[in-house]
Amino acid sequence: MTDDPTTDDGDRHADPAADSPGDSRDGGAGGDGVADGGAAAGTGAADEEGTTRRRWILRLLVGLGIGLPIIIEARTFIGLIRVHLLGQDRDDGGTAGTPTPTAEPSVGVGDELLEGTEPTETVREARIRVSESGWRFELSVAVDNTTDVPYELRLGDVRTTAGEVVDGGASTGQIPPGESAVVEESWPLPAESRPETLQVTALSYTDDGVDLTDETVTIGRVPLEG
């Protein structure tokens, strides 16, 4: 592929004089690019064949090089318009690679632990304390009893990402109507593992007895500290 004048590009002109200012069609005003960039002037059959081949390659290159990006960007643009302006569903049915993983709804700092209950149980702090003695998952939840009956929140067992269940048991005790309380608990974790779910129990002490809500809550990403 070397030194074939028909496939030359950067240094096509064997004759330096052809590359000099004044050769331009621009009235001899100094542009030398015309001669520098003109089509190969092969006169023989071999030259003609080479020129044809090069043109074919060039068309392919320009077609793919410009066409593919246009297709990709157009598809992206249309997708954005479809979702953001026309409000249509997102394209979750990609055909290549793995599908988009969808995690379960999870709770983190600032979220409500049990959305189905009337009192609010807001996660105040969640961290994994890392020390030489091991990893501990620490959780603090503020409970605001907005009902007119006593209310209690209990934090139970934690299941880790390694599948291990760690015992826990902390309670706010009975919170009188209109009052608030905070419950804190910590669970020892196997190193390198994270809390995945938490067992939570809510009790409302009504005149008719105790209404019990028992849920397994998925824990969001908890930062490491220490």
């Binding site: 997708g79 979702v83 290549a96 988009t100 999870s106």
Partner: peptide
């Protein structure tokens, strides 16, 4: 991408797997 409890990514066009590919 896939840890339990991690925030789900929400692609507008295509999927996370497709983007990675």
């Amino acid at each position: 991408f896939q840890e339990a409890g991690s925030a789900p990514f929400d692609p507008v066009v295509g999927t996370v797997g497709e983007m990675r590919l």
